[in-house]
Each structure stands twice: as C-alpha cells, then as structure tokens.
Amino acid sequence: MFEARLNTSQVLKKVLDAIKDLLNEATFDCSDSGIQLQAMDNSHVSLVSLSLRSDGFDKYRCDRNLSMGMNLANMAKIMKCANNDDTLTMKAQDNADTVTFMFESQNQEKVSDYEMKLMNLDQEHLGIPETDYACVVRMPAMEFARICRDLSQFGESVVISCTKEGVKFSASGDAGSANIKLAQTSTVDKEDESVVIEMQEPVTLTFACRYLNSFTKATPLCNQVQLSMSADVPLVVEYRIPDLGHIRYYLAPKIED
C-alpha cells in the first residue's frame, strides 16, 4: 500500500497551484524514494518535473511502485477543502483505481476524507540530458514573477540576456519596449534577496511570456528561483521546495527563422 503524510496541507496546495495552470492531468509516480511527476503542457512547449522525496514527508510508505493518474482540477477541488494547517494523508491500495485524501484538523476534532478516481494516462517520458549550463542565475522568486508579469504587457516574448555583469529581460511590441536589468548583488548578508550569476559564456535567448508566467505560480514555494540557460536549448526554471524536493520547468526557446 501507499501512504504519505504531511503535517501541513499547505505545501501540497502550493505544489498543485504551481502545476495546474500548465497541466490538466498528470501521473504521480510513487516509489520507495518518493513521488515524481513529469508532464508536458498540451502544446508540448514546456515540461514540468516535480520531485518530492520520501524523507521530506512526515510519514511515508510505498510497498510497491504505483502510478496514479490524476485530474488536477478534481484534485484542486479536494485540496480546497483542506485548511492550510490540516494534516494531509494520501492513501492508495496496491493496484487501486482510487486515491484517498484525508485531512485532520490540528486538534484532531475534524477528520475529512475524499476519494478520487484515478485515470489511466498515456505517459510520454522524456529523457532530460545532464547539461552544464552556460549561465545560471539565482534571484528572488518574487522579483522574477514581477518581471514576467510586467514584461508580458509589452509583448508575447521575453528576451533574456545574461552576461557577467547582470541579466537583462526585454520585451517589445505595439505599445513600445521594456528593458529590466538586474545586476549581481554585492552584499551577501541577505541570501534570499540576492542576485547571483554564474557565467561560463554569455547567453541570449527568447521565450514565450505566457509559459514563464505560468511557472511563476510556484513563487509561494520558495524565496529564490534559479534560471539555467545555454544557447539553443530549453531554459530551466527551478524552485526548491524546502526539505521536500523541487519543481523544475523546462521551456523550449523561440528561435529565429
């Protein structure tokens, strides 16, 4: 059987919010080491890769590998019924066609359970090559969200240029053009607010705004976001989930015809 418990429901609510914009349904692959999810958006432009380690759960048991296909809109209906500080337990029998979400209030006086039908989803698993990226930028997640939101007013695409000096985000369209430059921060005392750039080679890439904006739904998970870029390959936008795992979004670049 499979059983995974988190002492607060909030983190799974945030994880779900971070993926349900891009994905209508997804398969949660459960094993002894934890829960993995890999899925492309409908248009096959981006890929979501979620990893939740078994040791990050307050209780975790998975006797046999289990693939649970879930409709994320239905899962969201259920997660909406949990208070942030409720204990959450996900449970499924081996070879089951349902999963149960149980929520327990802090004082244990309210216990709710919701059973959801699982789906058989066609799984396309993509191999993500190990790559050394030419530029890796770490910056405040809120700042990245703000930049994506602001620039999407001006065009459908964002150009990201990274050099040793800093990272520049640009957009242009009928209304005009916009450029936001962030320099590497000089002080190291506030790690959460820092902008750090590790550059092997300068990179300039163009990406669709709407996907970047969807990725920023993960902002509540983490103070910092990491952007990894190399010429002519997908961007990686990574949010770490403290003590539990990470969510990585891969976005195919736009290329000049």
């Binding site: 492309m40 248009s43 096959h44 432009v45 981006s46 890929l47 396309e124 698993h125 993509l126 191999g127 993500i128 090559p129 695409s157 163009t206 669709a208 390959v233 997908p234 891969y250 976005l251 195919a252 670049p253 736009k254 290329i255 000049e256 015809d257």
Partner: peptide
Amino acid sequence: KHRQTAITNFFPNQ
C-alpha cells in the same frame, strides 16, 4: 520572426 520550438525537439522520448 521567431518560431516557437517544441520541448520534444530537445529531449528524447524514452
């Protein structure tokens, strides 16, 4: 003048 590529162009199907 920019064309959107697909993620499957970069990552092989396993």
